[in-house]
Nucleic acid binder design. Sequence first.
DNA 1: TTGTATGCGTTATCAT
DNA 2: ATGATAACGCATACAA
Lengths: 340, 340
Amino acid sequence: MKNASDAKKSPARPPTLEDVARAAGLSPITVSRALNTPDIVRPKTVAKVKEAVQLTGYIPNMLAGGLASRRSKLIAVVVPQINNSMFIDTIQAISDELALRNYHMLLCVSGYSPETEADIVSTLLSRRPDGIVLTGIHHSSELKKCVLNAAIPVVEIWDLTPTPLDMLIGFSHEKIGNALARFMLGKGHQRFGLIWTPDQRAALRHKGILDVFATHTGLTFTDSHVPLPATIARGREAMAQLLDRGEQYSAIICSSDTLAQGAIFEAQSRGLRVPEDVAVIGFGDLDFAQCTLPPLTTVKVDRWKIGQQAATLLADKIEGLPVAESVVDIGFTLIERGSA
Amino acid sequence: MKNASDAKKSPARPPTLEDVARAAGLSPITVSRALNTPDIVRPKTVAKVKEAVQLTGYIPNMLAGGLASRRSKLIAVVVPQINNSMFIDTIQAISDELALRNYHMLLCVSGYSPETEADIVSTLLSRRPDGIVLTGIHHSSELKKCVLNAAIPVVEIWDLTPTPLDMLIGFSHEKIGNALARFMLGKGHQRFGLIWTPDQRAALRHKGILDVFATHTGLTFTDSHVPLPATIARGREAMAQLLDRGEQYSAIICSSDTLAQGAIFEAQSRGLRVPEDVAVIGFGDLDFAQCTLPPLTTVKVDRWKIGQQAATLLADKIEGLPVAESVVDIGFTLIERGSA
DNA sequence: TTGTATGCGTTATCAT
DNA sequence: ATGATAACGCATACAA
């Protein structure tokens, strides 16, 4: 009587493989196989196991499983911040693809400091993830040592380099900067305002712009630096400061769409018409870009694909599948809409 | 010679506690203590251990540690979607607070289906998380059984109920609906358009509005349902459809700020003035709400605090600390700005 | 197709 | 303050 009810009710300790095995009249390892590799187990046996699992309320212990198999089915993802419109689609895409492949995502925030990133990665490594996604290509040497030593697949995202740690999927920020500058110059603009955040990748786009600017004469530009995170509010403030200087700008180039939209709001609130009085261009092609007034001219990057591909590369490599190209430039597109 | 280099170079297998112990001339358990509870170990011994850790490049294995100690230092977080402006600040807050407390975050996406959520939670449980954060209060009975059986602390967020699974931090969507309706009615509006997404919590706010509407006479309202996710683009489309019906609306109530901003853009693009010709109110007080043209009238919820508190409640309960109140209504504020 | 023996790397428990 | 021993729950390697 007592035992019968104990078997159904919550036991002191959660049921293990052994409990299931006992209930099914099999050995633990057979139960393990029935659960993990049902193809190599007789269907009848699998059925018996499933029944026993149901009966016991068994839930596998992946800590134990991972320890024994040396595969955790865990992917660590490190981003500068989660609540950032730029990265969030990529994160979602990673999560989705990983779920399809039966991995779980360990998500961590590194801020924009390589030291913090290194700390985070070193503790992350103690989870024995099967792979890791890192944002950007600028890491501390300590981090590189750690990660390389862990000997797990790595994907760096959101940037490009000929010398990635392992795999990489991103695009060239400098080329985007070049494209931005050429486009605006092509529109005849000469007096620029630049609204910019201080992160590494934005700096690269900035450099790309300046490199093109340097080949032209007669143009002027004014920098306005805003702190992270890049919000619409910060864009408005920066634009306000720029306009308060009393200078004239024919065009404002922003390091992100949020900043750009903020700049547009500020310009409009002062009665300036966009793009007639001042043109504004952003970066990111965030979801709102196409439906603002005027719609935002910007640079589109397939943020979703970055995540989907990163997860795929990782899972493929972990599972020993052939990985076609391990360094992927997904490129970008300048989308001309109404604002510039 | 060979051994000397082997010790420094990457060994076939990563160093274990035993390797560190050998290098330090101590027993593994002492090394474990020096690392986890340095206070109960002689300072000199701790120093020796740290040196040995450095030397060997030891990285703890939390799979093994978690298995032995039955504490994984893992918190599972389940949200309907990651790339959703509503949840993302909460997620970031959870992550930040958890990092402070030395936990890692396992983040999963459930969509808006209770069945999917149940599946996800049951696989998540196999990681033996020390606690779990669930979005909302509507879960399948299967999920409830699983979670309760796992006997781990649970926090439900973003909603309110007198009967949570365990702990809860949220607010009343119905009351927000009430407040929304009263505010608009107070402004003298009589002809409403409602732009709404089909998720559970939005439905509650909708109900809250209708309950108040029911107590008034002479008002009319038209529903416009939009699919998830709630984007600015969807808001524009819905507003366009509403306006194309040829009816007149004095006010539009939207289930989110993004939808509201979309509605505003659409109205403005048709030459309608907001709020003079049509008032618009949203929900969420997303970061852009205060700086749009006109600034958005909306309902503010402390999304950050929800996350921070959820993580704190969980960590406290896990660590046996006293938990003051395990059901927290963080309330909301209707913020009147320019759009309504 | 199923089972046996063993080890994964750590911590709990009890001892000294 | 430190150590010896025995789990923790599962999968690998090999055997039958």
